[in-house]
Simulated assay, not measured.
Amino acid sequence: MSGGPWAGDDRGHNDECHARWVASLNRSTGEPGYQDDWYDFQCGGCRFWVALSGELGKDYGACTNCRSPFDGRVRFEHDGCDCFAAREDESFG
């Protein structure tokens, strides 16, 4: 290990994190009850979603919305909740 901070580029570790974290999805696009209108209200498009750095930041970020039950938690960019607030620039991720 080098003396600097870990950059998050360990594929095995990242895959393990994804497997654990995806188990806590609020809304999974693959579930039969997923509503079509939720597609436009995913975490990655919310103004309160802050991407992680490194490889995990390509898919995961922290929720910073104090009204959301997920405030302060790592969320998958394709998850969502009822407290979604669209970004003014309509960007995603």
Rank of each mutant, 00 (worst) to 15 (best):
A62H: 05
D9Y: 05
S91L: 04
R27H: 14
T29H: 14
G30V: 13
R47M: 06
C81T: 03
D79N: 02
D79K: 00
A62C: 09
D37Y: 11
D10Y: 13
C46P: 03
E31M: 13
R20L: 14
W21N: 07
E77K: 15
R87E: 09
L52S: 03
C63E: 02
N65Q: 00
D36T: 12
D10L: 13
G80L: 01
T64L: 02
G72R: 05
G72C: 11
W21H: 11
V74A: 04
D71Q: 08
K58S: 07
R11T: 14
P32V: 08
E16Y: 14
S53I: 02
R67F: 05
A85F: 07
E16P: 09
D37V: 09
Y60N: 00
G57I: 02
G45Y: 09
G3H: 11
G61F: 03
G12T: 11
F48D: 05
G61A: 06
R73E: 10
F92R: 04
C83W: 06
A86V: 13
G72F: 04
T29R: 15
W38E: 03
S2C: 10
C43G: 02
G54Y: 07
D79H: 06
R20G: 13
E16K: 14
D82Q: 09
W38I: 01
C43I: 03
D9E: 15
G4W: 11
